[in-house]
Nucleic acid binder design. Structure first.
Length: 195
DNA sequence: CGCCCGATGTGCT
DNA sequence: GCACATCGGGCGT
């Protein structure tokens, strides 16, 4: 029994949404088939005050989707070659989003393997840019609505394994940010998951 | 294993 | 110019 996660789920405090996304299933419809994985790592970026958030210098063409309504995909390009996927949260006008950092691949393993040729299976979706490549997610999907089917990208409910445990920690790759932002424990991981 | 570094576009200083 | 919410290859241990 699965349901597409609706907009009111995303229209909440970004840190809460980041934690609650753990254990849900990210689904990509690609060439008529489902590619999916359980979300096992997320990170919250919270408003213009958060100096690690892309919105910290105000709205630009690049981060505009973050200022839009909740439940949409903010997908940005970085380091000249990588795409990263975020879910916009909170009310329109308030820039906040959850970065999806890792998945446990579940469906479409053959296609995922093809997208990640030469990579060990354990690393297929272990990292924000790795998972977008595995599920064929790029800038063409930036701004798309994750909540209104039929779409090409959405998140579904899923049963949380009884053995799963949530581990919090500081966000990854933002050492340039000053305190207190650098140390905010807005990274969430699900450990001991067995799908 | 771990560390170093190159790839390579975009937005900001 | 430079920094960046990154990754993967190369080489040393």
């Amino acid at each position: 029994m699965t349901e597409i996660i609706a907009a009111d789920f995303y229209n909440r405090e970004v840190v809460t949404v980041a934690r609650d996304l753990l254990g849900l299933r990210l689904v990509r419809r690609w060439q008529g088939q489902r590619l999916s994985g359980v979300i096992i790592e997320t990170e919250a970026y919270r408003g213009e005050d958060d100096l690690a958030c892309h919105a910290h210098r105000g709205q630009t063409k690049r981060n505009a989707v973050m200022y839009g309504p909740p439940g949409h995909a903010y997908i940005y390009f970085t380091y000249g070659m990588h795409w990263c996927l975020n879910c916009v949260t909170g009310p329109a006008g308030y820039p906040a989003a959850v970065l999806i950092r890792a998945l446990l691949p579940v469906e479409g393993l053959e296609q995922i393997a093809a997208h990640r040729a030469g990579v060990k299976p354990a690393l297929w979706c272990a990292g924000p840019a790795r998972l977008t490549r595995a599920l064929a997610i790029d800038g063409a999907l930036n701004g798309c609505d994750l909540t209104s089917p039929p779409g090409d990208l959405w998140i579904e409910s899923a049963a949380l394994p009884a053995t799963a445990e949530i581990v919090t920690g500081p966000r990854v790759g933002i050492n340039y940010a000053p305190e207190p932002w650098r140390s905010m424990e807005w990274n969430f991981k699900l450990v001991e998951v067995h799908p």
